[in-house]
Amino acid sequence: MRKFAKISAVLAAMVLALAFVGCKDDDDDNDQSVVTTWCTESNSSKFYFYDDGSVKFELDVETYSGSYSGDTTKDGTIKVFATVEGSSHTFTLEITDGKLYFEGYEYIKK
């Protein structure tokens, strides 16, 4: 009977130890994944479009963020809404023949 009590106590301790490990907080605030990435040939400018409707774009050395509407995976128009230097701006990007065009620059999908 004592042997059974010892085994039961050890098993209970193992279950409790594993239960606390399984309760780790895994809620990430950054649960976004990239839908598409576009960059210039020289990689000096990039657009990162995320599945939650947000966008991050790097234009030379400056980095901006905002939101977008449109399908970034096929030809069409993308609207980007961002605050740049304290002012709200809307930018229009065009995807034609698998390339993204913005302010005279051509971007390719990565």
Rank of each mutant, 00 (worst) to 15 (best):
V15M: 10
T40Y: 02
G66L: 00
E85I: 03
L11F: 12
S67D: 08
L18R: 05
N43T: 09
V84G: 04
G22M: 10
L59D: 11
S87N: 14
I7K: 11
E94D: 08
T96K: 15
A17T: 12
D97V: 05
F47T: 06
L16E: 01
L16N: 02
F102D: 08
G22L: 12
E58K: 15
D51I: 00
I95C: 00
K74T: 07
K3F: 14
G22D: 07
S42T: 15
S87P: 00
A12W: 05
T77C: 04
G70Y: 03
E94P: 00
D60Y: 13
A9H: 00
I108H: 04
D97A: 14
V61P: 00
N30H: 09
Y101C: 02
V84T: 08
G70F: 04
G86E: 07
S45M: 04
V84H: 01
K79N: 13
S69H: 01
V21C: 09
F49K: 03
G66W: 01
Y64W: 09
E94L: 10
G53H: 07
D60G: 07
A9V: 05
G104W: 05
E41R: 11
K79E: 09
Y68V: 06
D28M: 06
V21F: 12
S65C: 08
S45E: 06
S69E: 14
M1F: 10
G104P: 02
V55K: 05
A82D: 03
K6I: 15
K3R: 14
V61T: 14
L16I: 15
S67A: 07
D25P: 10
K6S: 09
I108R: 03
S45I: 01
K56G: 02
K46M: 10
F49Y: 08
Q32C: 05
A19S: 14
T83N: 12
F20R: 01
S67Q: 08
G86H: 09
I7D: 06
V61W: 08
I108Q: 08
C23E: 08
C39K: 13
N30L: 10
G104K: 04
G104R: 02
A19Y: 03
A13N: 04
T77Y: 02
I95H: 00
G86C: 07
T40N: 03
K56V: 15
D28C: 03
S54Q: 08
D26N: 12
S67C: 02
Q32H: 12
K24F: 13
